[in-house]
């Protein structure tokens, strides 16, 4: 794991609750070194054997300077960016992405996010991933967070978010 990255585990389970989401809030950026290994591992883990994602020679024959990251990997990284930030209790509802400048090996992609809207327990986050040659991805993620203190006897989080629980959400825990 590279410096500056924080995994969900390191952030602590349930670090954030619905009451911690504020429209306009910016998520800390996440730097993804685009290694050849990541491009190939992502393609194979997503069962995508298109040669342009693992064979540089054939990629060049098709007019690409090198292999490049597949869309499923970008999708997975965007999802990870959101759940890393909001914690393992966060549930992705929608991920919509559009690709631009390809992620070639040796580049670095920096994911940034801004909370655009908060509606009850659900937030819409605008995500952008820039690399050395331009904008790799723009996207919108809808994510739901459980209310901070689930009420006993109900496993539905349809009700309005209660006030933050000072025990579970000490001031400064949600940054």
């Amino acid at each position: 794991m590279t410096g500056g990255e924080m995994s969900a585990a390191e952030m602590g389970a349930g670090a954030l609750g619905a009451a911690d989401m504020r429209a306009g809030e910016k998520l800390p950026p996440l730097e993804i070194p685009v290694t050849r290994t990541l491009v190939v591992a992502g393609a194979i883990a997503s069962r995508d054997y298109q040669d342009v994602h693992h064979d540089a020679e054939l990629a060049r024959q098709k007019g690409s300077p090198d292999i490049f990251m597949n869309i499923l990997t970008t999708n997975g990284l965007v999802g990870r960016y959101i759940t890393d930030h909001f914690g393992p209790a966060a549930e992705l509802r929608k991920v919509a992405i559009r690709l631009g400048a390809p992620n070639y090996p040796g580049d670095t992609m920096v994911l940034t996010g801004t909370i655009e809207e908060v509606d009850g327990d659900t937030a819409t986050v605008r995500v952008v991933g820039d690399n050395g040659i331009g904008r790799h991805v723009t996207g919108t993620v809808t994510v739901a967070l459980p209310v901070s203190a689930p009420s006993a006897g109900s496993d539905l989080d349809l009700g309005p978010a209660p006030a933050p629980d000072p025990l579970n959400d000490p001031p400064g825990a949600a940054t």
């Binding site: 969900a8 585990a9 993804i32 992502g42 990997t73 549930e91």
Partner: peptide, 20 residues
Amino acid sequence: EAMGDTNPAYEGPDAKAPPT
């Protein structure tokens, strides 16, 4: 492993698959 995703929701007996 490929994504560098260590979310514990994707492990263990109650694991769910990453939605993405």
